[in-house]
Computed example of a mutant assay.
Amino acid sequence: MTRKLVLAGLSAITLTLAGCGQNTDAPSPAASESEIAGPESAPGVAVSGATVRLPAMAGSPGIAYFTATLSGADPRRIAGVYVEGVGRAEMHETTTTNGISSMKPVKDVALTPDQPTEFKAGGLHVMLFEVGDALKAGGTTEITITLDNGDKVSAPAKVEAFGAAAGMDHDMSAM
């Protein structure tokens, strides 16, 4: 009985190894999306200075800031943002009219060649909903932007406690 199990196991290994010599030009079905369209798939686009600010209270939204730069290429648009450890991320913009600030979601954000696009307090920013317990002040996470053509760029983001820097651009308790 043991001999039959050993032979069956060796047969399975032989069949698996025989498949290794096949054409490898196409991505394997098991390849992850990041291996196929990873951070290196957006030439000329860089994300820097990424920071995730944790919510003041559990269940409230957090916020993310970063700078995106497009070097010497045709204009692109940021179509979405993903932050590791967060259930949902939405791009928003704070505007002030007649001394009254308001915040609204934005569908996409223009990237102009050689002109940094800043996500910062008082302007464009990313609202973070369903912030996971794994994100801790002093740690890091990863932020990934997706462009209008599907290319992605990832960068590390510092995780900070709420109020770690002055200039909060809105009262998140109303969210």
Results as ranks from 00 to 15, higher is better:
residue 100 I to Q: 13
residue 130 E to G: 05
residue 153 V to F: 12
residue 120 K to P: 08
residue 161 A to P: 11
residue 1 M to W: 05
residue 105 P to M: 09
residue 149 N to L: 10
residue 68 A to I: 05
residue 1 M to S: 14
residue 143 I to F: 09
residue 78 I to R: 03
residue 55 P to H: 08
residue 122 G to Y: 09
residue 73 A to V: 04
residue 131 V to R: 06
residue 41 S to G: 03
residue 66 F to K: 06
residue 142 E to F: 15
residue 36 I to Q: 14
residue 18 A to Y: 12
residue 128 L to V: 06
residue 144 T to G: 12
residue 23 N to P: 14
residue 29 P to Y: 03
residue 8 A to H: 12
residue 10 L to I: 07
residue 6 V to E: 13
residue 18 A to C: 14
residue 44 G to Q: 09
residue 170 H to P: 12
residue 67 T to S: 07
residue 30 A to Y: 01
residue 58 A to Y: 10
residue 171 D to S: 13
residue 28 S to W: 05
residue 24 T to M: 03
residue 89 A to P: 01
residue 109 V to R: 07
residue 50 A to C: 13
residue 12 A to V: 10
residue 133 D to F: 02
residue 107 K to T: 01
residue 160 E to M: 00
residue 152 K to T: 13
residue 79 A to M: 10
residue 99 G to I: 15
residue 69 T to R: 02
residue 65 Y to N: 10
residue 123 G to L: 01
residue 83 V to P: 01
residue 83 V to L: 08
residue 136 K to R: 10
residue 65 Y to E: 02
residue 5 L to R: 06
residue 57 M to T: 02
residue 161 A to V: 05
residue 56 A to D: 00
residue 138 G to H: 03
residue 62 G to V: 04
residue 35 E to L: 15
residue 162 F to S: 04
residue 42 A to K: 10
residue 37 A to S: 15
residue 61 P to I: 11
residue 155 A to I: 10
residue 81 V to L: 07
residue 168 M to C: 03
residue 53 R to E: 09
residue 70 L to D: 06
residue 155 A to S: 13
residue 115 Q to M: 12
residue 81 V to A: 05
residue 3 R to M: 00
residue 91 M to P: 02
residue 114 D to E: 04
residue 60 S to M: 08
residue 110 A to T: 01
residue 13 I to G: 11
residue 88 R to V: 06
residue 46 A to H: 13
residue 174 A to N: 04
residue 7 L to C: 14
residue 86 V to D: 06
residue 91 M to D: 06
residue 74 D to L: 02
residue 152 K to F: 11
residue 101 S to G: 09
residue 90 E to T: 11
residue 126 V to N: 09
residue 57 M to N: 01
residue 30 A to M: 05
residue 122 G to I: 09
residue 118 E to M: 04
residue 112 T to D: 01
residue 85 G to V: 10
residue 116 P to V: 11
residue 59 G to M: 11
residue 66 F to R: 07
residue 102 S to Y: 05
residue 33 E to F: 04
